[in-house]
């Protein structure tokens, strides 16, 4: 099982300049195992910075990033291999599209890996299906796609590299609710079927509750909380303190409890709430 470990990692933007910004402050984390890990945190809390440290886009100002126990910066010349193993879909990835056709653009990563033509072709097709893009779009220019389609094409571009660990920075931001569920559902499915570790950044409490096994809350460059959904959402006063929230349905359950209808603790998804309510009123289970 692939493991990423952050050891005393700090990152400072513009170190030594008049306006240096300490984006990450002494982070210690074990990421890995066959789980979906979600990162939450208010704007500017350092999530994107952390994500870019995982595949060596940024180099820690101090501390180490270990992949399977080896410092990824041990041999800076080999950092490209790390990037093939840890696939990162950056925030707003639609701006990275450049090639003449969507097909060529998705093939950019696999081509850089030096794969054979047939292999690349196969991977492009698979990735396109994964991202829920229509195959007919493959020969269009990426600039003719809609915003959501661009997002999917960019996602496919990283999926096509078949990374061992997949990291996604707000993959669903700006998608319609249907597309959002579809993409996140597929990522979750991919995580389960491949048994790898997927790391996802999101601002949506609902998405976090629905898809993640582990939630890490960042605040001002530090890890504020780290645990399962119920462990994190159970501390919701603290969540409010760091500018976050709990899923809406948790408030509903809370209100119900105040009115004497206790449907149990740990209500974070609508689905679970519905089944609890149904069992309470003696209806059929869903």
């Amino acid at each position: 099982m692939y493991q990423i470990e952050l050891k005393n990692v700090s990152f400072v933007y513009g170190a030594g300049e008049p306006y240096e910004i300490r984006a990450l402050d002494n982070i210690n984390l074990h990421l890995g195992g066959s789980v979906m890990t979600g990162f939450m945190g208010h704007t500017g809390s350092g999530k994107s910075t952390l994500v870019q440290l995982l595949n060596g886009i940024l180099k820690p100002t101090s501390g180490q990033v270990l992949l399977d126990g080896k410092d990824i910066w041990e041999d800076p010349k080999k950092i490209r291999d790390i990037r093939f193993r840890v696939g990162v879909v950056m925030q707003y990835p639609e701006y990275q599209l450049f090639d003449e056709t969507v097909r060529d653009d998705i093939a950019f990563g696999p081509k850089n890996m030096g794969l054979s033509k047939e292999e690349i072709e196969q991977r492009v097709i698979d990735a396109v299906h994964f991202a829920g893009l229509d195959e007919s779009l493959l020969d269009k220019s990426p600039f003719e796609l809609s915003g959501g389609q661009k997002r999917r094409a960019a996602l496919a571009g990283v999926i096509a590299m078949r990374p061992e660990i997949l990291v996604l920075d707000e993959p669903a931001a700006g998608l319609d609710p249907g597309g959002r569920r579809e993409i996140l559902g597929r990522i979750r499915e991919f995580q389960r079927s491949s048994g790898t570790s997927v790391i996802i950044v999101s601002h949506s409490m609902e998405d976090m509750a629905m898809y993640c096994d582990r939630i890490i809350v960042m605040s001002a460059g530090k890890v504020a909380m780290d645990g399962t959904c119920s462990e994190v959402f159970g501390r919701y006063n603290e969540l409010l303190d760091v500018g976050l929230d709990v899923p809406q349905i948790t408030y509903v359950a809370d209100e119900l409890r105040k009115h004497g209808i206790d449907i149990g603790a740990d209500i974070y998804t609508v689905k679970y709430a519905a089944s609890q309510i149904l069992s309470k009123i003696g209806g059929r289970q869903i």
């Binding site: 886009i57 990037r83 990162v88 950056m90 850089n112």
Partner: peptide, 16 residues
Amino acid sequence: EETQKIMNAQKARGAD
């Protein structure tokens, strides 16, 4: 800033 972002995104796809 934008150049930096795009470069990073392409590096993430193994651009050299």
